[in-house]
Measured scan of single mutants.
Amino acid sequence: MTEYKLVVVGAGGVGKSALTIQLIQNHFVDEYDPTIEDSYRKQVVIDGETCLLDILDTAGQEEYSAMRDQYMRTGEGFLCVFAINNTKSFEDIHHYREQIKRVKDSEDVPMVLVGNKCDLPSRTVDTKQAQDLARSYGIPFIETSAKTRQGVDDAFYTLVREIRKHKEKMSKDGKKKKKKSKTKCVIM
């Protein structure tokens, strides 16, 4: 069974824990209790493949930012979460993405942009803004509501699919490099 290491990042209060708990335990946590770091595991079937999701729910508070490099190193894919009623959390996505790329030393890291709290009427981040940002990053965008469960499975499952595509691409690139290195030079 394939294991996928997913990391949920975003500013404090955007609903990272609520999304994760909704996926794992099928219930909505409405009281806000700032996370330092929590880890969850769940076995699911995605596109006919049974897999184990190892999900790291991270601290959004700035005082825990020193811990970010460590979990970013171990993560295979990242859910970059903002709240649709919090423009600052949307603007912060850029910083999370840049930090992930720096730590992973790669421009090509599996990510999904997630606009959470889409059940709320007080939207300050337009869907088109988020779609445009995701398009500019070359990553999928999904709106979710941890409260109603809308888009929750889709967000995590899409990230797994992005990781699969990335692994497939990397193995193809690896095979191309191996083929090239088999060419021999004969000096007579």
Rank of each mutant, 00 (worst) to 15 (best):
T2Y: 11
T2H: 12
T2L: 09
T2W: 08
Y4S: 13
K5I: 02
K5D: 08
L6D: 01
L6V: 13
V7R: 15
V7E: 06
V8G: 04
V9Q: 04
V9L: 13
G10P: 03
G10E: 00
G10Y: 00
A11N: 06
A11S: 10
G13S: 11
G13L: 10
G15H: 00
K16E: 05
S17G: 03
S17M: 02
A18E: 04
A18L: 01
L19V: 13
Q22C: 06
L23D: 05
L23Q: 15
I24L: 15
H27L: 15
H27V: 15
H27G: 14
F28N: 00
F28V: 04
F28M: 06
V29M: 12
D30G: 09
Y32E: 05
Y32G: 01
Y32L: 03
D33A: 02
T35I: 00
I36D: 00
I36R: 01
E37W: 10
D38M: 00
S39Q: 08
Y40W: 03
Y40S: 01
Y40D: 02
R41Y: 05
K42D: 07
K42Y: 09
Q43A: 11
Q43F: 07
V44A: 13
V44M: 11
V45L: 12
V45F: 10
V45P: 12
D47A: 10
G48I: 06
G48R: 10
G48C: 06
E49Y: 08
E49L: 06
T50M: 10
C51K: 12
C51F: 13
L52M: 14
L52H: 13
L52V: 15
L53K: 04
I55E: 03
L56S: 11
L56G: 07
L56T: 15
T58P: 03
T58R: 03
T58M: 01
A59S: 14
A59T: 08
Q61R: 08
Q61Y: 07
Q61P: 07
Q61L: 11
E62T: 08
E62D: 13
E62G: 07
E63W: 03
E63V: 05
E63D: 10
E63K: 05
Y64S: 05
Y64V: 05
